[in-house]
Computed example of a mutant assay.
Amino acid sequence: MPYRWTTETELELSPHRSLSPRGFAGVILLFFTLVLVPILAFLGTLALWGLLPFAMLALWGLWWGLRRSYADGAITEHLVLTPDSCRLTRHGPRGAHAEWACNPYWVRVTSHEDAGPVKHYVTLSGNGREVEIGAFLSEEERKRLYPELRAAISEMRAAAGPDGGAPRL
């Protein structure tokens, strides 16, 4: 599952991977085999050396494209809720890193049904900023995440109060 609550107050999100490492190896092996079939007819001829570089270039292009797709999808988001802090950390592709934090009492969870880069776009706002969460999830997953997130933040809000979790007198 692309998102899961590790505890009642910690949420981990990551994109779905449709091709496992074993599947990756299978695709490369299948492509290699299918490219070699027509080339075998040219074995022992000079034409083999004219076709082989293009076949290997195509194989390398497939390998590079799949590896790049994996690297671009290497995104993880981690949300930690405590009575005095709501902290979202995002680790993106190629070492990109971003953090956002706010008092849970002031956090607002919004689902933008049609406005946004994707349908049912979920954002957290507070501390003067609005940040996306789980934009890489499917529409159905974002629909499920929104009420769960609202409930979890409401619980923290009730525990925290506007002063950030300080005891109320």
Rank of each mutant, 00 (worst) to 15 (best):
V118L: 07
N103M: 06
H112P: 06
P167R: 11
T110M: 04
P117E: 15
Y121V: 03
R142V: 08
K119F: 11
S154K: 11
E141Q: 15
E155A: 15
E139H: 13
D114G: 10
P162E: 12
A96L: 01
L137E: 12
T123D: 04
V122W: 02
K143R: 15
S125H: 07
V109R: 05
G126M: 02
D163L: 14
E148I: 07
S111I: 06
A159I: 04
E139N: 12
Y121C: 11
L124V: 05
A98M: 04
V109C: 00
A160G: 15
G164L: 08
Y105T: 05
P167G: 00
A166V: 11
G116M: 00
N127R: 06
G165R: 04
A166S: 14
D163M: 14
H112D: 08
G128F: 05
N127H: 09
E141I: 01
S138I: 09
V122M: 09
A101H: 08
Y105E: 00
G164N: 05
C102G: 02
G164P: 09
H120C: 08
K143M: 12
V118M: 08
L149M: 07
R108F: 05
R157K: 15
R144N: 12
W100P: 01
Y105R: 05
V107Q: 02
M156Y: 11
A135Y: 10
S138H: 11
E141K: 10
V107E: 00
P104S: 04
A151Q: 14
A158T: 11
K119A: 14
N103R: 08
K119G: 03
E155L: 10
G134P: 05
S111Q: 15
Y146M: 07
A158G: 01
M156S: 14
A98K: 06
M156K: 11
W106L: 01
A96S: 14
L145K: 09
E141A: 08
R157Q: 10
E155P: 01
E141R: 07
A101E: 13
T110L: 09
R157H: 06
G164F: 02
A98S: 12
L137R: 12
Y105D: 02
R129S: 14
K119H: 10
E113H: 13
P104Y: 04
A115L: 14
F136P: 04
A101Y: 01
I133Q: 01
E140D: 15
E139V: 13
I133M: 03
G161K: 05
T110K: 07
S125K: 08
S125N: 09
S138Q: 10
R108G: 00
G161T: 09
E148S: 13
V122K: 06
H112W: 13
P162W: 06
P162R: 07
T110E: 08
M156E: 12
G126A: 05
A96D: 09
Y146A: 12
E141T: 02
P147K: 07
A166L: 14
A152N: 03
A158R: 13
K143D: 05
